[in-house]
């Protein structure tokens, strides 16, 4: 059901976008270009040193891979859908979703797709494959499995985080601003959060879950993930998914009560 919905929104997205020829080329170009920029930034740093706080170049490429992949997923469907959700609440068009015979959380979560972000997803995967090829010796099937699990957890945490923020718009009008903060802070994830001073690391771990979205999965492939972090990430993901679901349902009840 979820996939079917996603596909139909994807199809609409494709048709909408293809109307603008320039967009197609421009967006491809932009994705490549921003990736090249990040790599060039890495190159500048590694022209002066061979490791950054213990992270070797290939490992930082892996971090960048996860950053690009996760950023791609967020911008592909999570961010646009959540933005639209807040709009729906503000304009009252959420009524349409609530009266459809589908789970409203699912519907609202996939309703808007920015197809060009698929390019980021693809490039993130390419980067990861390259990085893994380079780190070959230390990544066995076990590590790969853990890596996949951590990616899923990271995505779940980011999604729940966005959903909770967007759900706040049932009570507060101006939530967009907080989302801008997240988007800005996400930039910091291009580097492992372990290099940042304590206060910034704390912010990036608990206030804005950049650490779990990017650094933790990258730690899984570079062999520095402890059992504690692994279990913690899984537990946090499960807890946030459950909590955000509960929060969403509460929000919807509040919305229906208020507008009835």
């Amino acid at each position: 059901m979820l996939l079917k919905l996603l596909w139909s929104y994807f199809r609409i997205g494709v048709m909408n976008e293809l109307a603008y020829r320039a967009n197609f080329l421009v967006q491809m170009f932009q994705s490549l270009f921003s990736l090249g920029t990040s790599l060039a930034g890495l190159a500048v740093v590694f022209s002066q040193t061979s490791n950054l706080a213990g992270w070797r170049p290939a490992e930082l490429v892996a971090v960048l891979g996860v950053y690009t992949l996760m950023g791609g997923v967020i911008n592909l469907v999570i961010q646009p859908s959540m933005q639209r959700l807040m709009e729906d609440v503000r304009l009252g068009t959420l009524d349409f979703s609530l009266t459809k015979p589908v789970d409203s959380q699912v519907l609202e979560s996939v309703q808007q797709v920015q197809i060009w972000r698929l390019a980021d997803v693809a490039m993130g995967i390419v980067l990861l494959v390259l990085a893994l090829g380079n780190l070959g010796t230390q990544v066995g099937p076990g590590e790969a499995l853990v890596f996949g699990l951590m990616l899923l957890c990271g995505a779940a945490i980011v999604y729940s985080f966005w959903l909770m923020l967007a759900t706040c718009s049932f009570w507060f009008v101006k939530v967009d601003n907080i989302l801008v903060i997240f988007q800005t802070m996400y930039e910091a994830g291009r580097w492992p959060v372990t290099i940042y001073p304590g206060w910034l690391r704390f912010t990036l771990t608990f206030l804005v879950p950049v650490a779990f979205a990017i650094t933790v999965p990258a730690e899984a492939v570079s062999g520095r993930l402890g059992w504690g972090t692994l279990v913690g990430a899984v537990a946090l993901a499960a807890a946030l998914v459950a909590f955000s679901r509960w929060f969403w349902l509460t929000g919807v009840r509040h919305y229906s009560g208020a507008s009835a």
Binding site: R11, V14, M15, L18, A19, R21
Partner: peptide, 16 residues
Amino acid sequence: EREAGLLASVRSLVRR
């Protein structure tokens, strides 16, 4: 000129 449908919109990328 723009035409309807997925295929047509792909085609219009190349030639308009």
